[in-house]
C-alpha cells in the first residue's frame, strides 16, 4: 500500500486545483454572461461589470495555490519526491479537500450574488461598491477553507520532513 502514498497526495493536489478551478470557471462564466448582456446595452459600464466578473475567479487561484504548496511540500516541485506512507499521503489528500470543496461551492454561490450585482450596476451604477461587497461576503468562506488547507499542509510538511 505504501508505494501509493505519493500518488494519493498528488491526487489531492489535482482534485484541489481542478475543483476550485471548475468552480471559478463556472462562476466567472455565469457573471460574464449577465455582464455581457449589460455591456451590450451600455458599453460604458464595462469596467464595473468586469470587476464583478473577476470576483468568483479567486477560488481557482486559491486552489492552484494549495496544489502548488502541497506539491512543493512533498518535493514534486523541486525535483526530489518524497517517499510517503499511505497514511501520510492520505493526510495530504484530506488537507487539500477543504479548499477543493470550499472553493468549488463558494465560487458558484459568489457568482450568483455577483450576477444579481450586475443588476445593481445596471440600475444604480454609483452603488457598484455595494454589489462588490455583497459578493465578497461569500468569498470569506473560500478564504477560511484556504486557510485551513494551508495550515494542514504546512503543518504536515514540518512534521513529516522533521521525522
Amino acid at each position: 500500500m505504501d508505494k501509493y502514498g505519493l500518488a494519493v497526495a498528488i491526487i489531492g493536489a489535482v482534485i484541489c486545483a481542478a475543483l476550485a478551478g471548475i468552480g471559478s470557471a463556472r462562476g466567472v462564466g455565469l457573471v460574464g454572461q449577465s455582464a455581457a448582456g449589460l455591456v451590450s446595452e451600455d458599453p460604458s459600464k464595462f469596467s464595473k461589470a468586469l470587476i464583478l466578473q473577476l470576483l468568483p475567479g479567486t477560488q481557482g487561484l486559491y486552489g492552484l495555490l494549495v496544489a502548488v504548496l502541497l506539491l512543493s511540500q512533498i518535493g514534486v516541485i523541486g525535483g526530489a519526491p518524497q517517499q510517503l506512507t499511505f497514511a501520510q499521503g492520505a493526510m495530504y489528500f484530506f488537507g487539500a479537500m477543504p479548499m477543493a470543496f470550499g472553493g468549488y461551492f463558494s465560487a458558484v454561490a459568489q457568482a450568483r450574488v455577483a450576477v444579481s450585482g450586475v443588476g445593481i450596476i445596471a440600475k444604480k451604477p454609483d452603488q457598484n461598491g455595494k454589489a462588490i461587497i455583497m459578493s465578497a461576503m461569500v468569498e470569506t468562506y473560500a478564504i477560511l477553507a484556504l486557510l485551513i488547507s494551508i495550515l494542514i499542509i504546512t503543518g504536515l510538511g514540518s512534521v513529516i520532513n522533521a521525522a
Partner: peptide, 22 residues
C-alpha cells in the same frame, strides 16, 4: 477569526507570484 484573511490573502499573493517565477 475573520482577520485570518490577512494571512490567507497575503500568502496567496506571494505564492502565486512564486509560481510565476517558477
Amino acid at each position: 477569526l475573520s482577520y485570518s484573511r490577512l494571512l490567507a490573502l497575503g500568502l496567496a499573493t506571494g505564492s502565486i507570484a512564486s509560481v510565476i517565477n517558477l
